[in-house]
Design a protein around this nucleic acid. Structure first.
Lengths: 223, 223
DNA sequence: GGTTTCTCTTGAACACGTTCAAAATGGAGG
DNA sequence: CCTCCATTTTGAACGTGTTCAAGAGAAACC
């Protein structure tokens, strides 16, 4: 019942991912992928618009694995700080095998034109899933926070996560140890700031942050 | 007295920059650059390791223009917030003409392997100049801040500037208006936070940030 | 002046991502 | 079985960034 074309398609993507993992993105040629998969180069291009498109597979795989593992890992935990830390450390765990060529992946993702950009139209579903995870991190925790902040905090945390990813891409330490240190030490900071957001002196600050996020996330902007 | 080789080198880079500006980075081929400059392709590669290297010229040009203009623009102003805002808005002014293919420039810069990465060895001088500008922003201002923060704040502000640049690259609004809004509204926030850093409740927070920056900027990390 | 050595220059050749006209395949309808 | 049409597959060909063996030129040394 599985269409023949679906089979070819997944054969190509599977082969590509395997070769990327074995030899890295740059050293894997389209000819090699096609050859190994037993199809012609043109055929690969019938299913995928470009070589870049093929790594969307990784992107999805990391995201899917992360969501599942993180949700399970924070089950039962109530402490906001712990929950957030677990989510981020889980990401580092899931992403670790891909760090070698993660560079290439995220270089392409940095291109605003690329569909791989975390801000692009195409990655809206993935982005919303990640933001949703952050929402859950807050929702089921005992965090007390400025109610005004509640709606926008998931977006802010997602942005924070993008920052961690950026650091990770540049992280050359063994096992990305430095990224782990970054998470372990910034999470308590964030938790404290979130807690302090209810303080009278910080109220205007957090309120302005919320309002800024709202204004800037309006997509359209008449010139 | 100017060496012949220097002449060829700058002829190539000048031609490249002109063609990039006229037609964009992608649509400008190495053959076109060489042809227009009246040299052979191989000759261009004698002076520049890759096509990417050629855009280091833009990088330098923006940085140089920014430093000069910004220093002049903040002359006499004492208010920290105003000084910081001016520095950032000046950057947006200087960079505006390059926004069209700034994308390509910063996509390459996002690659940690690339010498164009703001964290790379090769851009250390440029980075230190930018951090130095931030140091001056603080030094000649009336900002009162936690003395522990004083040493690390320039680095933090530089990081903040990188964030603004990242936003700018993705900014599709006319004249990068949204980037300007971002600057105008985040600068007061930062100024307020910097001012609040002396508060007793925030003291541990700012101290931890300082210590974290110190630890993570240690380049070497024994596995 | 001849010889050697170093710097600079050349352009053909290579490997790659990508395109495309053409061929093969596989049903659906007669 | 044949005909038509859409889907799928092919591989040669294109344009690109990049390399490299070979040469041209200049400078240094005897």
């Amino acid at each position: 019942m599985v269409a023949k074309s679906e089979e070819t398609r997944s054969l190509i993507v599977a082969t590509a991912l395997r070769l990327f993992a074995e030899n890295g993105y740059d050293r894997t040629t389209m000819r090699a992928i096609a050859g190994e998969a037993g199809v012609s180069v043109g055929n690969a291009y019938y299913y995928f618009a470009s070589k870049d498109q093929l790594i969307q597979g990784f992107y999805d795989e990391i995201a899917k694995g992360h969501l599942a593992m993180a949700r399970q890992a924070i089950e039962g935990e109530r402490d906001f700080s712990e929950r957030l830390k677990t989510v981020l450390l889980t990401w580092l765990d899931v992403a670790e095998p891909y760090h070698r060529f993660g560079t290439q992946l995220f270089v392409n993702a940095a291109d605003p034109e690329s569909p791989l950009s975390p801000f692009s139209e195409e990655s809206t579903p993935a982005r919303e899933a990640s933001v949703g995870l952050m929402r859950d991190v807050i929702a089921d925790s005992d965090a007390k926070l400025d109610p005004d902040l509640r709606d926008e905090l998931p977006d802010l945390l997602w942005l924070y996560q993008m920052g961690v990813v950026l650091f990770w891409v540049h992280d050359r330490s063994g096992g990305q140890k430095r990224s782990r240190v970054l998470v372990e030490r910034t999470v308590p900071l964030i938790a404290r700031l979130v807690g302090l957001s209810r303080l009278r002196v910080l109220r205007p600050v957090s309120r302005e942050i919320v309002s800024l996020i709202r204004d800037l996330s309006k997509r359209d902007d008449a010139a």
